[in-house]
């Protein structure tokens, strides 16, 4: 089991640790609901050092990324970032990623922890035809996510850089609490916030400075409930090797006007199911629960949980294309009415 540079700090803060993708990470410190609401209403800080970081450099870095990713990396100016996906040759998804352009010929790709080895092998194979250098920097990169409506004002107290000049999806170097960092105005909660890329030895002092300044430590439990409430996909749930992204709410990521791996296969497939958001009348939907309509199963829950803002059970589910509501979710043998909801489930800025 791997530990992040913050392992000891988490224990001192009373975290309940769990195994996630081979890493020991905090599930919660005090309460998932409390941590969730702190991020929605004020500011919380997450250790997401388990995430993978790949550096892509070279004359053909852009050409390589255009082939390997579904979004248009050519639109990225230096200092800007975009959400993207790594398609497979069958039109499915190897991983969903965030791509940051650090320099003229240098990009940073953040990938899911559970997919680091798979993604690296996939990208190395694709890179053979390009003059590009691919480096797995995951082990030497710590990552914190400072999220919430008060994230910017809190962080401004710890850096000399004027954060008011920075927009969503900007990436830039800065010193935080006296330590060198790369900051990005990105996150996975649906709130404003920043992600802080740090050297491992700087992670604990910066994390503790953020906590000292008022950020509530938040664990993986709140990270998952926040992303679900925001209607964001989680790889392995809403997106898999078999998922055609064109049949999901994240079809906007795929830029059909450029060439990329698996494009023809992706375009050739008809969509047999669609992703919906559901709000339950009672009970908490869980992954794998059946979605019913007219007394017959028409789909399945891919992510389910509790929305602290709605105080209801909510789910992302795939249902058959053409299945009309009203829908129910089968909770322990009971068909619980489930209303369709737009995504995100709650209004976000």
């Amino acid at each position: 089991m791997k530990k992040t540079p913050l392992y000891e700090a988490h224990l001192r803060l009373g975290a309940r640790m769990v195994d996630f993708a081979g890493y020991l990470l905090p599930l919660q410190y005090t309460s998932i609901v409390e941590e969730h609401l702190a991020v929605r209403r004020a500011v919380g800080v997450f250790d997401v050092s388990h995430m993978g970081e790949f550096l892509v450099r070279g004359k053909e870095a852009l050409a390589f990324l255009q082939w390997a990713t579904a979004n248009d990396a050519g639109k990225l100016k230096v200092g800007r970032a975009q959400y993207s996906m790594l398609p497979n040759e069958r039109g499915g998804v190897v991983d969903d990623i965030y791509l940051y352009r650090l320099g003229e010929e240098e990009y940073l790709m953040v990938v899911n922890a559970a997919n680091i080895a798979k993604d690296l092998a996939h990208l190395q194979a694709l890179a053979k035809g390009f003059r590009v250098e691919l480096e797995d920097a995951s082990e030497r990169t710590a990552l914190l996510a400072l999220q919430g409506p008060k994230a910017a004002s809190l962080l401004q107290g710890l850096t000399d850089l004027d954060l008011s000049q920075k927009r969503k999806n900007d990436v830039f170097p800065a010193r935080v609490a006296g330590r060198p960092a790369r900051l990005a105005r990105t996150g996975y909660t649906g709130e404003d916030g920043f992600e802080l890329f740090l050297a491992p030895e700087d992670a604990e002092p910066v994390f503790l400075a953020l906590v000292e300044a008022g950020a509530k430590p938040a664990g993986l439990g709140a990270r998952d409930s926040l992303r679900l409430e925001a209607g964001f996909p989680l790889y392995g749930h809403e997106l898999t090797e078999e998922t055609n992204p064109l049949c999901t709410p994240w079809a906007w990521v795929v830029k059909k006007e450029k060439a990329f791996l698996g494009k023809e296969a992706m375009l050739a497939q008809a969509c047999r199911e669609r992703l919906v958001g559901l709000v339950l009348e009672g009970g908490i939907p869980r992954e794998g629960y059946r979605v019913l309509s007219g007394g017959r199963p028409v789909g399945r829950v891919t992510s389910g949980g509790y929305s602290p803002l709605l105080q209801r059970g909510i789910a992302l589910a795939y249902v058959e294309e053409g299945a009309e509501g009203p829908f129910q979710v089968e909770v322990r043998g009971r068909a619980v009415p489930a209303a369709l909801s737009p995504l995100p489930f709650v209004p976000l800025k």
């Binding site: 998932i32 439990g221 009970g283 908490i284 509790y306 105080q311 322990r332």
Partner: peptide
Amino acid sequence: LGDVVYVE
């Protein structure tokens, strides 16, 4: 269990 959010 952690935060209890529903009791059937």
